[in-house]
Simulated scan of single mutants.
Amino acid sequence: MSDAAPLSQPPTASHAEMSAAGLRAFFNIAHAWNLNAEEQIILLGAPGRSTFFKWKAAPQSARLGRDTLERLSLLLGIYKALQILLPQPAAADGWIKRPNSAPPFGGRPALERMLAGNISDLVAVRQYLDAMRGGWA
C-alpha cells in the first residue's frame, strides 16, 4: 500500500456554466459577425424562436443539449482561428461573408456553408481554417 495522497482532479465546469459561457461567447461573436436572429438560430441548431430568445435574455439559465454545445465549440473555434489568421478584427469578422474560391466554399461565403444547418458544414469550415493555420483538422 502506498502512503501517497490520491491525486486530486481539477474542478470541472458544470453543464449550466458551460452552457451559459458558450452562449455569452456566441452572442458576442454573432454581434461581431453582424448576424441576424434567423442566422443565429440556424447556427445554434434551430431551437424554437422562444427558446432562442430565452437563451439570449438569460444565458445563465440555459441548459443546452450536446448538439448545441458541439455547435458552440465549433463556432468558437472558427472565430478563434479567424482572429489568429487575420489579426485585423474587421478582416477577421468580415471573412465569413466574403466570397471564397477555396474548395469547401465553391465561390460562396463561408457563412453560406455554415448556414446549411448541418454540424458537418461547421466542421468543414473549422477544418479548413485549422489547415490554413497549419494545425490538425
Rank of each mutant, 00 (worst) to 15 (best):
E17H: 05
P104E: 00
E70H: 13
G22N: 08
D67H: 14
L23S: 01
R63H: 06
A62Y: 10
D3S: 04
A13F: 04
S101I: 15
I41S: 12
R98M: 06
A62V: 09
A90S: 04
G117F: 01
L115A: 11
I78F: 00
F26G: 02
A124M: 10
A131T: 01
R113K: 14
P103M: 04
A32R: 14
L7A: 05
D3A: 02
L64Q: 06
A57R: 14
P11I: 15
I96W: 11
L43R: 07
Q40F: 00
G45K: 11
V125Y: 04
T51H: 08
S101F: 12
S14T: 15
W55I: 14
L23C: 07
G48Q: 11
A57D: 04
Q60S: 15
N36C: 13
L43H: 09
G135Y: 06
N36V: 03
V125G: 05
A62L: 01
R98V: 03
S8R: 10
I41W: 05
S101Y: 14
D93R: 02
A5V: 07
P47M: 00
F27G: 12
A13E: 10
E17I: 02
D121R: 11
F105L: 06
P47I: 06
P10C: 08
W136E: 15
H15A: 09
R126F: 10
N100M: 02
S50W: 10
R113W: 07
S61C: 00
Q40C: 14
H31P: 00
A131H: 13
R108A: 15
